[in-house]
Design a protein around this nucleic acid. Sequence first.
DNA 1: TGAGATAAATGAACGTCATTCATTTATTGG
DNA 2: CCAATAAATGAATGACGTTCATTTATCTCA
Lengths: 207, 207
Amino acid sequence: MAAVLGQDGITAAALELISKKGYDGLTMAALARSLGVAPSALYNHVSSKDDVLKLVEEDLMSKVDFGGFSTLPWEESVRQWAYSYRGIFARHTPLISVIAVLPVTDAPQTLAMYEAVTEGFLRAGFPEKQIIPSIVALEAYIFGAAFDANAPADIFDSGRLADSTPHFTSAVRSLGPERNNYPSDLAFNMGLDALITGLGALRTQPK
Amino acid sequence: MAAVLGQDGITAAALELISKKGYDGLTMAALARSLGVAPSALYNHVSSKDDVLKLVEEDLMSKVDFGGFSTLPWEESVRQWAYSYRGIFARHTPLISVIAVLPVTDAPQTLAMYEAVTEGFLRAGFPEKQIIPSIVALEAYIFGAAFDANAPADIFDSGRLADSTPHFTSAVRSLGPERNNYPSDLAFNMGLDALITGLGALRTQPK
DNA sequence: TGAGATAAATGAACGTCATTCATTTATTGG
DNA sequence: CCAATAAATGAATGACGTTCATTTATCTCA
């Protein structure tokens, strides 16, 4: 019997479903329906729903822009990469808990990204031993920031406990005229600058 | 009828259940059983399982050590706070997606932490407008690092794709004699130093 | 051409969950 | 002491992921 769809089709359908209905809408039943097939048929192509999530994750990784590492100065490459990375996974936060713990073995897109990033760090003059930890630190920050990007504008509204937290409340107010002004982008930029400066200092022969 | 247990008891039981069976073992049925009660009885005290998670989260927040901010120099306070924060949530990663997006309104423990941290930043000479974004950036890093702390030792094993990723594979190998040596702690420390240095530079009147 | 072998799809069935609801039971305040 | 209220019960519901025996289509090769 001709396969209605292989892993590629499943991945594409899953992505479309996620973009339309979010991760709550991504059920095996809905996925099968969007492919015109019975739910059980999916199990001829993937071994579990987690498998589907891994496929989606790999696909997203291929969309992260790490092109700067072969052309731009290190600082700008990192900035471009980090923004792209965060932007993509901010809309896929449920995947983060999967990625962060998923071995890269057999994840070609992910490996390709790491290879390019590693090369960029080498070219910039980083000692080999510092590179992986630096990437890990940057990724941790990017993943955390991706969650953050989804926070509601009123996340720091101290409500009726404002009186007991005067300094915090005042610091929040200082951010802008709007009552609740969540600085996700501002904060991301600030922390990224700090990381780039701090990690950049590890270079032995800056280029 | 006398309440068998209020929110405090539910929170404690949930924490115990999580520590024994993990987050997969935290079901409303198991929670009720551990309290000697029918599952439906829980709904007289909490409105949903998400509610239970919020209770747990608040409880954990009260265990984060932010005491340094009233006594230690800023750098050391941040370090102490960050290590404590990461250590606690590394074993509660499923909560991170909840916290990161949860308004602090009516979360007294969380607010108390923010107030203390804000005071520490003020005392260290940070301009008010920089404080919240700095905290947000640090928290993003801490949350991401908490995920990381759970990664398996072989997460960077490039397997049979090692040939196509020579620089990356070599960088991973350079970390140690063991074949796969995941540097979660090393990376956390490195990134934290970078953030502390970078953010610390924002102070106008370092103390 | 035709007979396996194989890959893929089906539909029914399971087990697990969170959650709801009508009802019963205990406690407390006036 | 009665009425109001708070809490617990057990049955039922509806998602959901997953399994499995069976059927159906396609491919291979003699």
